[in-house]
C-alpha cells in the first residue's frame, strides 16, 4: 500500500510542514515502505495490555509556586527573528 499524494499533502498540511514536489514523492515511497514494516505489530496480542507512555513511576510532579527570576530579556530576544520593543514580532494571525 503506497500512500497517495493527497495523504502525504494532508499530513504535511496538518503539521504546517512545507514540502517540495520531490519531498512529496520521496515521502510517498519511503513512509509507505516504513509503515509496511510496522505491520509486524498487528501479530502481537495486546488484549488487556495497558499502554506505556513512559518508563518511570513518577506522576504529577508538583512544586511550590515560588517566584524566581526569569531569563534575561535581552539574551532571550537576541535570538528573535524579529522584535519590537520587548516583544517578539509576529505576522498577523487574523487577516
Amino acid at each position: 500500500m503506497k500512500l497517495s499524494r493527497e495523504e502525504v499533502i494532508h499530513i504535511a498540511t496538518i503539521y504546517r510542514l512545507g514540502l517540495s514536489e520531490e519531498d512529496i514523492e520521496k515521502a510517498r515511497e519511503q513512509i509507505s515502505n516504513i509503515l509496511e514494516n510496522f505491520e509486524i505489530l498487528k501479530e502481537v496480542d495486546t488484549t488487556n495490555v495497558p499502554p506505556t507512555a513512559q518508563s518511570i513511576n513518577l506522576q504529577n510532579i508538583m512544586r511550590d509556586d515560588v517566584p524566581h527570576p526569569s531569563l534575561p530579556m535581552e539574551e532571550v530576544l537576541a535570538n528573535a527573528p524579529a522584535r519590537e520593543e520587548d516583544f517578539f514580532k509576529l505576522r498577523p494571525v487574523l487577516e
Binding site: T46, V49, P50, P51, T52
Partner: peptide, 8 residues
C-alpha cells in the same frame, strides 16, 4: 498499539 507493545 506501539505503547501497548512497549508494555510487553
Amino acid at each position: 498499539k506501539a505503547q501497548k507493545v512497549r508494555t510487553l
